[in-house]
């Protein structure tokens, strides 16, 4: 976790492509070296079951033999574990950058996986630390997935990068006879299956809400949304995760001129 900073100070290494490097130089950002943050941990195996209901679905029918109440709710232990792992890895990367006297980290790549089984989590972040020669030391190192001319465009249009971000929300659906009745097609066509709609909505709106809380006063752009569903016997999970760059607008946006339209003759 403590990077070896004793290397030759005049040599930089970076994950930047040549155009990205050229853009950094023209923005007066000097690449310092590749920095990384890593976290590997265990997720408690029973935490997945500690959900709490957001909405109950009483039995919709008199004819059913069993009258069971289904519900949809959040299971946030897993989400907290993953978001915590991401935050720790990010902090470590920024710490490494700060040690080098860098102002920011560009071109951040995020890799997340289960290294051994479903009960472990692994987060690896890496990017190129950059510094603005002559500027004073920052209180907080910024980070972004962007690099090169895209980053330059961002700044030109009035935004500045703040941080890479990750949010996640898992909704749990416990089937009751409402679900069994409408969801199994026994009743007929055309019934709204509320538990399914609600589970999908809860996962997505939860992830967006977490991202909003995280991004007070700033915007989360370039979001990629991943939704994962697991169906089990009587219980299903819908997980939604968001990844993106937090950016802050510091100027009113200057309207961009109309783009030049071209047809490429390369096939």
């Amino acid at each position: 976790m403590t990077p070896d900073t004793a290397g030759a100070p005049n040599i930089f290494d970076s994950g930047l492509t040549t155009p990205d490097f050229a853009a950094c130089i023209s923005m007066n950002l000097q690449p310092v070296r590749l920095v990384q943050g890593y976290y590997c941990g265990q997720i408690s195996s029973w935490s997945a079951y500690s959900g709490y209901p957001v909405r109950n679905y009483p039995c919709a029918c008199a004819e059913m033999d069993m009258h069971t109440t289904g519900w949809v709710g959040r299971v946030d232990d897993l989400d907290r574990a993953w978001m915590g792992a991401h935050q720790t890895a990010l902090d470590r990367m920024l710490q490494e950058a700060a040690t080098l006297g860098a102002h920011g980290v560009v071109g951040v790549t995020t890799e997340m996986s289960h290294p051994t089984n479903a009960n472990s989590c692994e987060v690896h972040l890496y990017g190129t630390a950059v510094l603005s020669p002559g500027a004073r030391a920052p209180q907080q190192v910024w980070s972004t997935q962007l690099a090169g001319h895209k980053l330059a465009k961002l700044v030109e249009t009035g935004y500045v990068p703040s941080s890479v971000a990750y949010s996640r929300c898992t909704a749990m659906l416990v089937e009751g006879c409402n679900m069994e009745y409408y969801g199994s097609g026994r009743c007929g066509t055309g019934y709204i299956i509320n538990p399914i709609q609600d589970a999908h909505s809860l996962a997505r709106s939860g992830a967006i809400e977490v991202a909003r809380q995280m991004s007070q006063g700033v915007s989360l752009y370039g979001v990629s949304m991943e939704v994962h569903e697991t169906e089990g016997r009587g219980t299903s999970y819908v997980t939604c995760s968001l990844r993106g760059s937090l950016v802050r607008r510091v100027r009113a946006t200057l309207p961009l001129g109309p783009p030049v339209t071209t047809v490429s003759l390369a096939s």
Binding site: S219, Y221, G222, S224, M225
Partner: peptide, 18 residues
Amino acid sequence: VLAPSVAGAGGLTSDLSL
């Protein structure tokens, strides 16, 4: 024209590229 995080711009999410 400066505004620290222009009014109304806070807390936006978007899956659009820059």
